[in-house]
């Protein structure tokens, strides 16, 4: 699924990485605990989270994730925007909750991590 499709499904607002909206992604991971993101080492491409701090971006970078979607209209600060821009990460936000965001993407074919690993 193209990242632009995620944006469309969620009615999300693109904050950074406009140039990478055409990238294809196959799996996503949703949580507020970066410890969990780091411990699940499979090919996650998209991070859905309600946590907003620079470690969200650094964690995504460490895991080779290409897209971060903030739920409940959370807004990243300037430092986070600069960090995401510098690294070509697509950052978006949506007004939906984490649960609903996951549900919408999952039911449209974007699966979870372990299902891709199998």
């Amino acid at each position: 699924m193209k990242i632009s499709k995620l944006q469309e499904l969620l009615g999300a607002k693109v904050i950074t990485g406009e140039e990478n909206l055409d990238k294809e992604v196959y799996s996503a991971f949703g949580c507020d605990l970066m410890s969990d993101v780091l411990a699940c080492v499979t090919d996650q491409a998209v991070l859905l989270t309600g946590l907003v701090n620079p470690q969200v971006i650094r964690t995504a970078l460490m895991m080779d994730m290409v897209c971060i979607i903030f739920v409940r209209s959370k807004v990243p600060n300037d430092e986070m925007i600069a960090l995401a821009k510098e690294n070509g990460i697509v950052m978006m936000n949506t007004d939906k909750t984490l649960y609903n965001t996951c549900g919408i993407l999952y039911s449209n074919g974007l699966v979870g991590t372990s299902e891709v690993a199998k």
Binding site: D32, L33, M34, S35, D36, L38, A39, V41, L51, N53, Q55, V56, T59
Partner: peptide
């Protein structure tokens, strides 16, 4: 509340 502190870091360091 910053997203850390689950007690998974050291085992993850060992794993990687």
């Amino acid at each position: 509340s910053l997203g850390f502190g689950a007690g998974m870091g050291l085992p993850n360091m060992k794993k990687n």
